[in-house]
């Protein structure tokens, strides 16, 4: 029947378009696997997962990245002979899944070192240490320490380490409001979408200073029942070669003093604890 000619053609084309990717799949898989470092060295290019949270990681007006983690990463990659760095920006919660899915080769962010994450990824030596702060609107009754957070509606970063921390300390999930970044968090607080903001101090402090919000907000820092945590770059468990090379260069940077210079230029304190901490000692948080 000539009437079916067009229809049959279209259906055949359509099913071909749907099936082809499936046939290609096994070929794409075989390109991944062992020898990540060797492949990166050969292509002189690395893809990294990045968070945008000044001053940990931040954006330049030309679209390139600055901040502690990207700067340290760039120094190390240059020393390894990898010249091109392609950055993919996501929230903290997306960084690990994206790396496991092969979207980027490692996480070049100040990812807080936590026990559950230590089971999923291999960390580098810590590159920053920080404490958390509690921010509330001036004049409002608010929590003074982490143990008191459970009686309030709390805003925090989506997928960040704080998310697990407050749940462990008894804040019910229903009372948590997650936001993609510190700016959105502060705007949320000002719009009274929650009562208390809980998160890493340096980033929030910088925005409050930039916007001149000191007169509107109460910032509690340091929080008495908080402990210092470390943050580091993270690698897939199987990419031991890349991790070892990164560690070697990071330790060289720490020994030469270049590391301290970079980290303090972004307003972070560098103490002996940060310089001597290893993934093993940091993993207790």
């Amino acid at each position: 029947m000539s009437e079916d000619w067009t229809r049959r053609r279209l259906v055949a084309l359509g099913s071909a378009a749907l099936i082809t990717p499936t046939l290609l799949a096994p070929r794409l898989t075989s390109a991944q696997g062992q020898g990540l470092l060797a492949r990166l060295l050969a292509s002189k290019k690395v893809r990294v997962g990045i968070a945008n949270q000044p001053p940990f990681s931040a954006l330049n007006p030309d679209g390139t990245l600055t901040g502690v983690a990207p700067t340290i990463s760039q120094l190390i990659m240059t020393r390894l002979g990898i010249t091109e760095i392609e950055g993919f920006i996501g929230t903290y919660g997306e960084l690990v899944p994206g790396m496991q899915a092969g979207r980027w080769d490692y996480i070049s962010a100040c990812l807080t070192v936590t026990e559950p994450r230590c089971k999923q990824v291999t960390y580098s030596d810590p590159i920053t240490s920080d404490g958390r702060c509690i921010v509330t609107l001036k004049g409002e009754k608010g929590p003074k320490k982490i143990a008191e957070l459970k009686d309030y509606v709390v805003g925090l970063l989506a997928g960040g380490a704080d998310f697990r921390m407050v749940q462990v300390r008894g804040v019910p999930l229903a009372n948590l409001r997650q936001f993609p970044n510190d700016t959105a968090l502060l705007d949320g607080l000002l719009a009274r979408r929650f009562q208390a903001q809980f998160g890493s101090h340096p980033g929030i402090a910088e925005i409050i200073r930039k916007r001149g919000l000191e007169k509107d907000l109460d910032v509690i820092y340091p929080v008495e029942d908080d402990a210092v945590s470390f943050a580091a770059c993270a690698f897939r468990k199987e990419d031991t070669d890349l991790h070892a090379a990164f560690q070697r260069e990071l330790r060289a940077l720490k020994a030469s003093g270049e590391f301290a210079k970079v980290v303090s230029s972004f307003g972070f304190d560098v103490d002996d604890k940060l310089l001597t901490a290893t993934p093993e000692t940091a993993c207790t948080f």
Binding site: N52, Q53, P54, A58, L59, I89, P180, N181, D182, T183, A184, L186, D187, E206, I207, K210, R211
Partner: peptide
């Protein structure tokens, strides 16, 4: 949208 979010985040101001 991506760039807007990123810039808002960097400037510390979304408005």
């Amino acid at each position: 949208s991506f760039r807007a979010t990123l810039i808002g985040d960097t400037l510390g101001e979304n408005g």
